[in-house]
Design a protein around this nucleic acid. Structure first.
Length: 502
RNA sequence: GGUCUCUUGGCCGAGUGGCUAGGCGCCGGUCUGCAAAACCGCCUACUCCGGUUCGAAUCCGGAAGAGACCUCCA
């Protein structure tokens, strides 16, 4: 019976994996997902620039593409997932006069640039691990691929699509656009771009304000620089992703992901670079996640309205009424479709926290359900609906709604209002294992304690002790103090009230 | 200013040309020493104005509002 059931599931699964549909930004339509070389899939996602603590906005693409990675693997594909680390290269065009971001921070803190990058990369890993985001197959660093980037810039120069000025190399957008379409991904028209691009200082080297740097000559105060045929310098903003994706996934690969804010110019430039260097586009499906908003506005570095993951986990940001566990954050993000904006609020986060708890408890309750000889529910429909939802552009909210329905069935069965057969129970277990744990990557961290839990508990214990003292129940009040002492917590009654420390 | 996107009930959020997710919250009930949990019920929405249609919240046009990108950003 059980074997038969599993077989049925496997067959169903094979049917399902051929029907994945993804929204391709390139065509602005949902398209049938057909890998270039099944069962292998190449996926590249733009990773973090490691010069600050990761915030809620960084969790969105990490989790969105973690879901894609997990689901594609679940359906039997062999996925090579590459996510880069930007530890050099992003120019700042404002008052900093082209100073490298990593470097700027380094000078402020009197550290080696690589020391700063390493520190924040470690922080990034720490928080992503807590969010149960799987590590990518390869995590290449831009600083480790200078040679590849120089080689690609050379190819673009050889193709006549770039020019050198004073040791810097720029991509010739206008020339490229005579043969190809610069703007095909973002839907922009070059003439409009030229008319609307701001003229920033220090850009007189460029033929056209739209041209972007492939290689930039380092100014004397620049400490991060590498030798190249053109100058001691550093690679331009967009080159690393093109060079590294092609190096590890080939000249053509299946999926390229990233935040919608990278669509232009970053991803547009990647396409131009690939076409100029290799004569063909490298990406088949472009997937973009939407932004996390706060008070209706994008949460981001530049606006300074971001809340770091560390602040969420400890409840230490002024906008937070409490600490939220990593799984609460993960669940909160998965409750919205990856292409929709997601608005942060304490209320929404608390709703996510309670909802997740309900699911986790449903799974626990399932363990004690006694099987009946007949069934009053159809579990396989829930399973099928979950597959349909994921096949339809990774619709996690629908999956979650089906899991809630499963939890409702479990609770009702526990109340004797529904009946479940042994097969039903097995299927429910499989449902939670596959979708909640394996694909959505959720697990039980309800015991997670933020700093405020200890504070709250101590406040409670000490108020009970105070009550005992007021009632002259000194046996109880002394017992509380002695037991706390045994636990390593010192309690002292001062004239300003009771204080404690570990 | 240019390009694009969005507007769903108290909140968060799916989705569809007719069968009107889900969570949280509120209220009522069952249960309960009290509470919690659980279950049942309730609150039934789609910015506005036109049009197409037997029928639109869903398609088309217009208006208003919000946002993203055009500069580093996930």
């Amino acid at each position: 019976m059980l074997v038969k059931n599993q077989l049925f599931c496997e067959i169903k699964q094979k049917e399902m994996d051929k029907n994945i549909v993804v929204f391709n930004t390139l065509t602005r339509k949902k398209e049938k997902f057909k890998p270039l070389n099944p069962p292998s899939i190449g996926m590249y996602v733009c990773g973090p620039t490691v010069y600050g603590d990761p915030h809620l906005g960084h969790a969105r693409p990490a989790i969105a593409f973690d879901l894609v990675f997990r689901y594609l693997k679940h359906t039997g594909y062999k996925v090579r997932y590459v996510r880069n680390v930007t530890d050099v290269g992003h120019l700042e065009s404002d008052a900093d006069e082209g100073e490298d971001k990593i470097e700027k921070k380094a000078r402020l803190e009197q550290l080696e640039p690589m020391e700063v990058a390493q520190y924040y990369l470690d922080r990034y890993h720490l928080f992503m691990d807590q969010l149960n985001v799987l590590r990518p197959s390869i995590e290449p660093r831009a600083s480790g691929h200078i040679i590849e980037q120089i080689a690609m810039a050379k190819k673009i120069l050889d193709a006549g699509m770039a020019y050198e000025v004073n040791g810097s190399v720029y991509f010739d957008v206008e020339k490229y656009n005579t043969k190809h379409n610069y703007g095909k991904l973002s839907g922009r028209v070059l003439e409009d771009l030229i008319a609307n691009t701001r003229n920033l200082e220090g850009q007189d080297e460029k033929k056209n304000p739209c041209d972007f740097a492939l290689w930039k000559k380092a100014s004397p105060e620049h400490i991060m620089h590498w030798p190249s045929p053109w100058s001691e310098g550093f690679p331009g903003w967009h080159l690393e992703c093109s060079a590294m994706s092609i190096k590890y996934l080939g000249e053509q690969f299946d999926i390229h992901g990233g935040g919608m804010d990278l669509l232009f110019p970053h991803h547009e430039c990647e396409i131009a670079q690939s076409v100029a260097a290799n004569g063909k586009e490298s990406v088949k499906y472009w997937l973009h996640n939407n932004m996390v908003t706060i008070n209706g506005q994008k949460m981001g570095k530049s606006l300074g309205n971001f809340i770091t993951l560390n602040e969420f986990f400890t409840g230490t940001h002024k906008s937070l009424t409490k600490a939220y566990s990593p799984m609460t954050i993960r669940f909160f993000i998965l409750q919205a479709h990856y292409r929709s904006t997601l608005d942060f609020s304490n209320e929404a986060l608390q709703a996510a926290e309670k909802g997740l708890k309900k699911l986790i408890q449903g799974m626990e309750t399932l363990k004690k359900i006694k099987p009946s000889s007949n069934s009053s529910v159809d579990i396989s429909k829930l399973q099928l609906d979950c597959y349909h939802a994921l096949n339809d552009d990774f619709n996690s909210p629908i999956v979650i709604s089906n899991l809630f329905e499963a939890a409702r069935i479990i609770n009702s069965a526990n109340d004797g209002k529904e009946t479940l057969t042994a097969a039903n129970i097995e299927l429910l277990k499989k449902l939670f294992n596959d979708f909640a744990f394996d694909i959505l990557g959720l697990h039980d961290d309800t015991a997670f304690s933020g700093n405020d839990l200890t504070e709250g508990l101590m406040e409670l214990i000490l108020s009970l002790r105070q009550n005992a003292k007021v009632n002259k129940d000194f046996a109880t009040s002394d017992k509380i103090r002695d037991e706390l002492t045994k636990l390593g917590i010192a309690v002292k009654d001062t004239k300003d009230g009771t204080v404690w420390n570990v």
